[in-house]
């Protein structure tokens, strides 16, 4: 709410300083999509798409999505067409707006296959935050923990051992909006992107829901008053 209120002021500030600075979502860590009235942070999700495309797409599919869906993140059809045209599908043809996201070839690492990420946020409790914690949870194993072959230590993965390596590092991608691509920023952005991928109608649902609730709350009160009055007169 406050953010929406101050957005025009902020915009003026940004113009004055002459540099488009991305909003800081890291200190403290927060996701605009969370909470009962959350909406997808389109700027973050666009950056998150860059992370997905640049880092995750070589292992993880996103089967539920078509390239045209990216327009939902605020990209123009021309931009999306450009993104799709750069993708070579398995049949050698460039992707189009109506192609599904390209599926990487079959991969098996340490006995595990990379899961499809279309619904990953809905498939884990506290999904958005989990994806962030998972991606930033890699590190050297604590003393006394010996890793299985082909496994890596991850603090939040159940069991602590995962067959996905730590793939994010500072400047793994270059952001078009000039945001600094720290590991944490990349993790937060791709988490917001995957939140959108799992629930692309989240913003619309909250907006429609809020309006409907207000309308029907009003209607219910009026209807109750009318009913009371009629019953007093007739009954």
């Amino acid at each position: 709410m406050m953010r929406r209120f101050f957005a025009p002021l902020l915009a003026v500030g940004v113009l004055a300083s002459g540099a488009a600075r991305a909003e800081d979502t890291l200190s403290p860590l927060h996701f605009q999509s969370q909470g009962w009235s959350g909406t997808i942070d389109k700027a973050a999700a666009q950056r998150g798409f860059a992370v997905y495309e640049g880092v995750c797409a070589s292992c993880h599919s996103l089967h539920g999505l078509h390239y045209r869906d990216l327009e939902g993140l605020g990209l123009t059809p021309a931009q999306v067409a450009g993104i799709a045209a750069n993708v070579r599908l398995a049949n050698g043809q460039p992707a189009t707006l109506n192609s599904r996201f390209k599926t990487p070839g079959a991969i098996s690492m340490g006995g595990a296959t990379p899961p499809d990420l279309s619904n990953i946020v809905a498939q884990r409790p506290g999904g958005t935050r989990y994806v962030y914690d998972f991606l930033t949870g890699f590190g050297p194993p604590p003393a006394g923990v010996s890793l299985l072959p082909g496994h890596f230590y991850n603090a939040v993965f159940p069991g602590g051992q995962v067959s996905m390596p730590a793939v994010l590092r500072d400047n793994a991608v270059t952001y078009a909006d000039g945001a600094k691509a720290s590991t944490a920023q990349e993790a937060a952005d791709v988490a917001e992107f995957l939140t959108w991928a799992s629930d692309p109608n989240l913003s619309a649902r909250h907006a429609v829901g809020l309006r409907a609730v207000l309308f029907f709350a009003f209607l219910t009160i009026v209807a109750l008053l009318v009913k009371r009055r009629i019953w007093r007169e007739e009954g």
Binding site: R205, V208, G209, F216, T220, K227
Partner: peptide
Amino acid sequence: SQYFAALAGLALVFSLLLG
């Protein structure tokens, strides 16, 4: 009038859940 109020209340709960 009673049915209408009940239906409105149901729609309210419905929208809460839906949204």
